[in-house]
Design a protein around this nucleic acid. Structure first.
Lengths: 352, 352
DNA sequence: CGGAAATGTGGCATCGATGCCACATTTTGG
DNA sequence: CCAAAATGTGGCATCGATGCCACATTTCCG
C-alpha cells in the first residue's frame, strides 16, 4: 500500500532531511504477516516455513529494508562490531595486523571498529571506554598497559591480546614466536662467522622485545659464544633515535653485524650505515626482525624474520570469534605464529 | 542501595556470563534523581543545575556507568560511528588516509568503522549495505563504483569521496591536486633536459589517473614538447604488471626518464631498472607520484610528489563532520589537497 | 505584594527488533 | 476417527536512553 517503492530517490544536493527507513513493521505489512514472523524469516534460524520466508525476503527486498543494528543490538544484547585497538596504523606492522583482522571479521559478517592509541596509556583507556559504550562483544588489542585488557574483561568483553603480553594477563593471546625467530636469525649470522653482533632494541619489558632478546642470547649460548652486554644497544621506538644509537654503537664498539629488533629501528640503522658509506654486507651485515615491504626494495635487500603479520591478524580474529561463540574451553589460549627467516643480500660472511 | 559497588570483579578465567551493566536507572537511584535528569546531566547540553550535574556525574563514576550507544543511537536517531570504505589497508596510501581520518574522528569523539573492499564492486556494495544497517550518519569512501556513494546518499547518509571521483558524483570530494602535482613533476624532468619521458599509468577513467596524465600532458604543452603517445605505458594496478610494462617500454622505446603514476607501479619500475643494472639517475631518471616511506630509503632515493595523504584523510573527516553537523551550505564541496614536489637523487640531467 | 516569567525536574511514550509464550492449525499414531 | 504431538504464527513486553511536555519552584517586575 505504501508507495515508497524502491529506495527513496534523493535530491541532487546532499540530503539534509533524515530519510525515513522501512522497518520490520513495513515489511510485515508488505508481506502480509506479523513483525515477529518477519524477524524470524529474515534472521533467526529455523522457525519459518519456506514459503513465508521467501515471501518476506521478497517484500524486504522490494521496499529496500535494511535491519537496524542499533535496535537489534539493544534488544538482543549482542553486537557484531569488534573493537581493534592498535598503536599506529601508519606502521606497516599494525596495518598488516589490522588488514588480517578485518579480512577475517568481514568474512564472518562482523565489523571492525579501529582505534589508534598512539602507544599512549591514556588514549588506550579512553578507547576502551568507548568500546564498552558500543557494547562490543570482543576486542583485539596490542596492549600498552595491562589495565586496558583487564578493564575490558572485567566488563565481560572478550579480549585477545596481539603481539605482546604482560606478566599476569588472563586474556587469550596471539604472539609471533619471537624467541625462535630471533634465535634463527642470530644463528644465521653466527654461521656466517660473526662473533660480535650488535642488537638494536627498544624495550624488553613487553614479551615482544624480551622474546627477541632471549632468542639472541640463546643463539649465542647454543654456539658457545660469549655475549658482550655492551653490544645490546638500547634505544627508543623511533627511527632517528635508532640512528643515533647505531652511531654510538659503531663508534664505541667493533661489530661486524647488527640485528634490529623491529622495522622502525631498522630504518635508523640502515640510514646510519648508508651515511657512513659502509658496504653491506662486505663490511657489515644488517638484519631485522619484522619483514616489511621496503626491506626487499632497498639495495641490498635486507635479511629479515617475517612474522606473518597478516596471518597473525587472522588468527586473532578467528580466536576471538570462537571465544565469542563459546566454542572454546574456559582456559586461556595462546597461539604462536611461526616466524620465518628470509635470507637476502644484507647479510654475508664476517669480514677479515 | 544496590551494592554493585565498583565494576564487577571478574573471574581469572575469561568471562562467559554476560555482565549486568549499570543503566541510567541505576545512576538515577544512586544520585536520587530521575532518569531524565541523569540523561540531561550527563549528555544533553544545558538543562541541569551544576549541583545536580556534579552529583549525577559522581554517582555515575561510582557505579561504573557507561552509556549504551545502541540505546542512545536508536532513540535519538544518530550515531557517532563513521564508515570508512577503502580498497587496501596494506597499501601505505590507504593506511595513511585511514590514519588521518581516524585521528580527526577520534578528536571529535567519533568512531571509525573500517572496511576493505579490495577494489571489488561487489564487496563495496556489501560494505555499503552493512554501513546502512549500522545507521552511520556518514561515510568516507575511495569509490570503486559510482553506485556505492549514490546508494548511500539515497538513504540519507552523508558521503565524502576521497582521492577520486566519477563523472556525475554529487557528493563532497577531497582530492589531491593531481594535475598540478604531475605537471610540476614533469616540468622538473623537462627542466633537466629530458624530452622522452615515459609515463607508467594504470587507469585514466578515474579522476586520479586522468588528472595525473593531464598534468603530464600540460607540462609538455607548456614547454612546446611534442608527446609521443607510445611513451604513455598503460599497465594494471600491480607491481609485477608494472615491471613487465616497464620492460616493454624500455625495449621498444628510447626514454631517459620514467614517471610512475603511483606507489605500486613505482615498485615494479624500480625493480626492472635495478634488474637491468641501469645507473639511476645517470642513465635513466625515475620519479613517482605518491610519496611513501620506502621511496626515501632506497638508493638513490626517489624524487616524488607527496600528496599529503594523512592530511587528506584529516580533511575528509573534517568535511564530513561539518556536513553532518549541518554547518555547510547545501552545494557540494570540493577540497583540493596541494601536492608537493620532493626532489631526491633519482632524477638528474638527461644523458648525452 | 501578586501574578507572570524563568528555571529545573519528573513522567511517560518511544526508537525498531526480537524473545517468549500462547494459540491455531496440521500431522501423527493408537 | 479422535486425542496428542508437532509445527508455524501472532501478540506483547522489553532492551536502555532520551525527547517532549507538564508541573513545581523560584525569581522577577510593575
Amino acid at each position: 500500500m505504501s508507495p515508497r517503492g524502491q529506495a527513496a530517490r534523493a535530491a541532487a544536493q546532499p540530503v539534509q532531511q533524515p530519510v525515513r527507513r522501512p522497518t520490520v513493521q513495513d515489511v510485515a505489512r508488505e508481506a502480509g504477516v506479523s513483525p515477529s514472523t518477519v524477524s524470524r524469516a529474515l534472521h533467526t534460524r529455523g522457525y519459518a516455513s519456506p514459503a513465508v520466508r521467501a515471501r518476506v525476503q521478497a517484500a524486504a527486498e522490494r521496499i529496500g529494508y535494511v535491519t537496524d543494528h542499533n535496535a537489534r543490538n539493544l534488544r538482543s544484547r549482542t553486537s557484531t562490531s569488534i573493537g581493534v585497538l592498535i598503536s599506529d596504523l601508519r606502521n606497516p606492522f599494525y596495518a598488516d595486523l589490522a588488514a588480517g583482522i578485518e579480512e577475517e571479521l568481514r568474512a564472518a559478517e562482523y565489523q571492525m571498529v579501529l582505534v589508534n592509541d598512539n602507544g599512549d596509556p591514556a588514549e588506550e583507556m579512553q578507547a576502551a571506554e568507548t568500546l564498552l559504550a558500543m557494547r562490543v562483544p570482543g576486542v583485539i588489542v596490542t596492549p600498552v598497559t595491562a589495565k586496558c585488557p583487564q578493564v575490558l574483561q572485567d566488563n565481560g568483553v572478550h579480549v585477545v591480546c596481539a603481539d605482546r603480553e604482560f606478566g599476569r594477563a588472563t586474556s587469550d593471546l596471539v604472539l609471533s614466536d619471537n624467541k625462535a625467530g630471533a634465535r634463527e636469525l642470530t644463528e644465521h649470522l653466527i654461521a656466517l662467522g660473526h662473533t660480535r653482533i650488535g642488537m638494536l632494541i627498544d624495550e624488553t619489558k613487553w614479551s615482544t622485545g624480551a622474546g627477541r632478546l632471549a632468542g639472541f642470547r640463546a643463539a649465542h649460548v647454543d654456539n658457545a659464544l660469549e655475549i658482550d652486554e655492551d653490544l645490546i644497544a638500547y634505544t627508543s621506538f623511533d627511527a632517528d633515535a635508532a640512528r643515533q644509537t647505531t652511531r654510538r654503537l659503531l663508534n664505541d664498539h667493533e661489530v661486524t653485524a647488527i640485528i634490529s629488533a623491529n622495522n622502525v629501528l631498522a630504518q635508523g640503522a640502515l640510514a646510519e650505515l648508508k651515511d657512513r658509506r659502509l658496504k653491506i654486507p662486505r663490511q657489515i651485515s644488517l638484519a631485522a626482525y619484522d619483514d616489511v615491504p621496503w626491506m626487499s626494495l632497498v639495495q641490498p635487500a635486507l635479511t629479515t624474520v617475517d612474522q606473518s603479520t597478516v596471518e597473525m591478524g587472522r588468527s586473532c580474529a578467528r580466536l576471538l570469534l570462537a571465544r565469542i561463540r563459546g566454542e572454546l574451553p574456559p582456559r586461556r589460549r595462546l597461539v604462536k605464529v611461526p616466524a620465518r627467516l628470509i635470507v637476502r643480500g644484507s647479510t654475508g660472511p664476517a669480514p677479515r
